[in-house]
Simulated assay, not measured.
Amino acid sequence: MDRKKAAILALSLLTIISTDTVAPLVKQISASYPQVSSTMVKLTITLPSLLMIFFGLIAGQLVKVISKKAILAIGLVLYSIGGIAAGWSESFPGHLILRGLVGAGTGLISPIITSLIADYYQGKERADMVGYTFAISHFAAVITPPLAAYLGAEDWRKAFIIFSIVPLVFLFTMIFLPGTARRVQSDAAEKRKAPIPTKAIQFALIALVMMIIFFIVITDLPYLIETKTGISPIVSAFGLSTCTLGATIAGLTFSQIYVRLKKWAIPTSLLACGLGFLLITFSGTSVLILGGLLCIGMGIGILISLIMLVTANSAGEADSTAAVALVNGGFSIGIFISPFFYANLPRIELGLPAVEFNFLLAGVLFAAAGVIALLVAISTNKQLNLPHR
């Protein structure tokens, strides 16, 4: 493996763990701050996503004046400070400020990762790298939530030592990532004027809605498990990791799945998410719940990889950082809005606890979107071909 590929994959370790690592600790953090509502405590997961939006857009502008390697250095320093120190803040506002630094750092590095892939790789190799970076980021998120739950079993603050990996990635990246991208545009002035593609704007909106619906599985899975009886403790400990494992598998096999399914990739992924949500809502057995979480992870993994690949290619010969940052912003806004969306939903009396109703709604929405996408795929002969640029 060449050094720049290793550096890009190392950076990918950090993108998802900024939020997922903290998810198993929400109830313990809430107990440490009894004066703070549970919805506000969830900001420790969602606030970084909000900051990712603004700093992702900033990254899209900074590439015009400083190198991508310099932007990565700034982002990784912010991530290192906020990630480790957030566990030792005595006040909740101080904790949130430091978690905000994590979001700022992640926002700077995330679009750079995908734009570096667009700079260095083309065609199937580009699709492979998009899938690999997605898989690596989610593989890390398979490991860190149960590790955080273990380290933070007695004191949730100890779990934040996991973020000590960030300074190590910083050193590795600074040593092995080249200072200048391979693809240097001769018409740099025209490149700066290139507008964000319409397709990127469309996918940013899709990403926003998709994350609003999906992210309840990250924030509220422990509360759903509490409503069920006879469920193995393994589900509580490894449920989120099972979902993330599904996303990892989807990332590793993305280009092969995409080539085989073509126009059926979108409806298949949406229906997999819908099936998964319905399984975990109504099932009373541990195996089926874990199976549902695996389905959700695989479905969302294919959808996110597809969105990122098409976004990177939509920029054409222009730098893709701004387009990727916009789509990442869509994902992040959706993540931030999700808890408030579900908390303020009008209730339909179905005899279900509120959390079960919310998971049921997510399953119905994904399934409905899958059916619509399936009908569109059936009615058209156009194939969603793998870009070769």
Rank of each mutant, 00 (worst) to 15 (best):
Q28T: 01
I112N: 05
V26A: 13
S91I: 00
P233V: 02
I234P: 00
F54I: 05
A377R: 04
Y223S: 15
G94L: 04
R3F: 12
I143G: 10
L345A: 03
G274L: 02
T244D: 11
A315E: 02
L50V: 03
G82R: 01
S18Q: 13
I162N: 04
L177C: 02
A86D: 08
L43Y: 03
M298E: 05
L374E: 10
G329C: 06
G56S: 12
A237Y: 13
N358A: 14
T44G: 05
A323D: 01
H95S: 06
G152D: 09
K199T: 00
L51P: 03
G299L: 10
I196A: 07
T227H: 10
E317M: 04
S18W: 01
I84C: 05
L47G: 11
K191P: 00
S49Q: 09
R126E: 14
S241T: 05
T380S: 15
C273G: 08
P267T: 01
T21P: 01
A343D: 13
A7C: 13
I97M: 12
N328E: 14
L171V: 14
A149D: 13
V209L: 15
R192I: 00
F331K: 07
T242W: 11
V77W: 06
S30R: 14
I206T: 10
L224G: 08
L261S: 04
G251M: 05
N381M: 10
G246T: 04
R260F: 15
V259W: 00
R182M: 09
L361W: 05
I143E: 12
A377M: 08
T268H: 00
L43N: 11
A312W: 01
S91H: 08
V235D: 12
V235M: 13
P48G: 06
S305C: 05
N313S: 01
F331A: 13
L116S: 12
Y120T: 07
I280L: 15
L252D: 01
S137E: 03
S286W: 09
G82H: 04
S320M: 04
T21N: 04
G60M: 10
K228D: 11
V65G: 07
L294N: 06
L14T: 03
K124I: 12
V287S: 14
N385E: 15
G370L: 08
Y79H: 09
G60H: 07
T311Q: 03
L386I: 09
L386M: 14
S49L: 06
D128W: 08
I143W: 10
G370Y: 06
F340H: 11
F359A: 06
I117S: 08
L240I: 11
R157K: 13
C295N: 02
V130W: 05
G297W: 01
F172V: 00
K228L: 12
A373T: 08
I234Q: 06
G75Q: 03
Y33N: 08
L240G: 09
L72Y: 00
A272F: 12
I165N: 02
G94T: 01
L245T: 02
L221F: 09
F336E: 04
G82S: 06
Y120G: 12
F331M: 14
L14A: 07
D187C: 00
A86I: 00
A318V: 08
L116Y: 09
A354E: 15
L208K: 03
K64Q: 14
